[in-house]
């Protein structure tokens, strides 16, 4: 049971870190790319709101992903 759990934790941790990184990059591009804003139908007055949401989501995802990775790494060493 431990091995499948460990594999799932590592995969989910990596995916979350990936999502977090992408969200952080997305936050930057929401600010800098007008074509992206147009594609996502983001009004000019909503730009900072979406940037904030994207940044917060990115940070939380990375924190959660790192926690999963560190915990599984710590358990394997223990």
């Amino acid at each position: 049971m431990r091995r499948p759990r460990r594999i799932v934790s590592l995969v989910v941790g990596l995916v979350q870190c990936g999502f977090g990184g992408l969200a952080s990059v997305l936050s930057y591009f929401i600010y800098s790319s007008s074509s992206l804003r147009e594609a996502l139908a983001i009004a000019p007055e909503e730009v900072y709101l979406y940037m904030f949401i994207s940044s917060v989501f990115g940070v939380l995802s990375i924190v959660s992903g790192v926690m999963l990775l560190v915990q599984e790494n710590g358990r394997r060493q223990g």
């Binding site: 759990r5 799932v8 934790s9 989910v12 941790g13 995916v15 979350q16 999502f19 594609a39 996502l40 139908a41 959660s64 992903g65 926690m67 999963l68």
Partner: peptide, 28 residues
């Protein structure tokens, strides 16, 4: 108002995020 492709792309991303994060929550 989103284009058809963008709508389905966002839908797919939302479903994947929902699944992945629910598994992460269970693990935690």
């Amino acid at each position: 108002t989103l284009s058809h492709d963008m709508l389905w792309l966002l839908f797919t991303i939302a479903v994947v995020i929902s699944a992945v994060y629910s598994v992460a929550g269970i693990l935690d």
